[in-house]
Simulated scan of single mutants.
Amino acid sequence: MSEIPSSLPASSWFTHPGARNWSCPPVRDDVPGFHASLPDYAPTPLTELPSLAAELNVGRVFVKDESSRLGLPAFKALGASWAVHRTLAERTERQGDGPPVTLVAATDGNHGRAVARVARRLGQRAHVFVPQGVHPTAVAAISAEQARVTEVAGHYDEAIRQAADAVASAPDAILVQDTAWPGYERIPAWIVEGYSTLFTEVDAQLAAANVELPDLVVVPAGVGSLAQAAVIHYRSRPADSVPAALLAVEPDTAAGVLASLTHQEPRTVPTGKTTMTGLNCGTPSALAWPYLRDGLDAAIAVTDAEGARAARDLAALGVSAGPCGAASLAGVRAALTGDDADDRRASLALGPASTLVLLSTEGAAANPQYLDHRS
């Protein structure tokens, strides 16, 4: 294994002691059944890695490996497929069968490709806006799904703005975005619902490993929609169950969730270059924010070097992970080791028998920039 960082700046860590006392309603229960009906559906692996448990001084560590999800190398297809299904079903109820629509999205790579794949399979069109810094191979993969691609000379938030403007001027276009703002919440909420299948799978896989509930779940955070799904899943459980702690991980160059939690209000941070391209988002989703504020136990920011080191170590253990997916390992390493680690462990209620679940949200193939760097 690679060397573990020995210290963590205070500005890179946030904790909320009351998060496990907060609760919320669950999502609807028909989402996993929808995904199971898709022809290329299969649960992704939950792989136990005893060497990581020994390194982190906990009982068991499992990695949820999203390197192959519905034919794509990241988890995003869960949200895109459910949201498009709901969107088109409601449109048909209102208008009946009609000509194809254009599904529009902004993306750092994986979400846009997922929307484009769903559009192609359903006979719809797709138009995807891509900010600067996304690798040409990732852009080509979106184009290969027969999507129109517009490359934006700006950051992710600017790509979202242009995508929304394009929909406003095209009556046959529908924005399918995984971040929300006032007045645009319905489709992002469906995307979050789609992610719930991932956690339903984790429940079943842990039960098969004789684990009722993990003690800590670690989630990479871009705009925060997957972290929102994690909060809803684990904060809507029966009151007599022992709640799981939830840790969000971001790049230190795009830590919008951490900044917002630190200031207790939504903040936009300037974003820089990062190999964690799928997490290079400066503004938390307005829909996710209340759930993150109230239901996350902690948030942490990690460097590109820490993410790359975690990806290499996961690869050596048989798990394909790009830096976004490996951010979970990088984050939990930073949280549970080094200066003040005992205090951080205590804030997460972790001990030597604890069970951890790390969400590896993308495979190495989802991040060509990382593959270039690695080679």
Rank of each mutant, 00 (worst) to 15 (best):
A89C: 07
L317F: 03
M276I: 02
L246M: 08
G33F: 08
A365S: 14
L52V: 06
L348D: 05
V115H: 06
W22F: 09
H127R: 14
E212W: 09
A315G: 00
D252S: 13
L314Y: 02
L279T: 03
V167I: 09
V149W: 04
G338S: 13
V257Q: 05
E66Y: 05
P352Q: 13
V202K: 03
S328H: 02
L371K: 04
L46P: 02
D157K: 12
H16S: 10
A334T: 08
G272M: 01
Q264G: 08
A147D: 06
G351K: 12
P45I: 02
L72Y: 04
A305Q: 15
P39A: 05
P220F: 06
A119L: 04
D40W: 06
A341S: 15
L8Q: 08
V27S: 12
G59M: 07
L206E: 09
D65Q: 09
R20T: 10
A221L: 05
E306H: 01
Y291A: 13
P100V: 03
P188R: 04
A54Q: 11
A141T: 07
D215Y: 02
L78T: 05
L78S: 11
Q132S: 14
R69L: 06
G79I: 04
G282E: 06
S23N: 07
P26R: 02
A36N: 05
A334Y: 05
D215G: 13
L358H: 02
A305E: 15
N280E: 14
D372Y: 00
A316N: 15
A254N: 06
T275R: 13
A259T: 02
E185R: 14
T355A: 12
L348Q: 08
A310Y: 07
A346H: 15
T262D: 13
V231Y: 08
Q205R: 12
S354Q: 07
L314N: 03
S285I: 03
H35L: 09
V319W: 02
A259H: 05
L356I: 14
W22I: 06
Q162C: 07
T107W: 01
S347K: 13
D343E: 15
A349R: 13
L56N: 10
R28A: 12
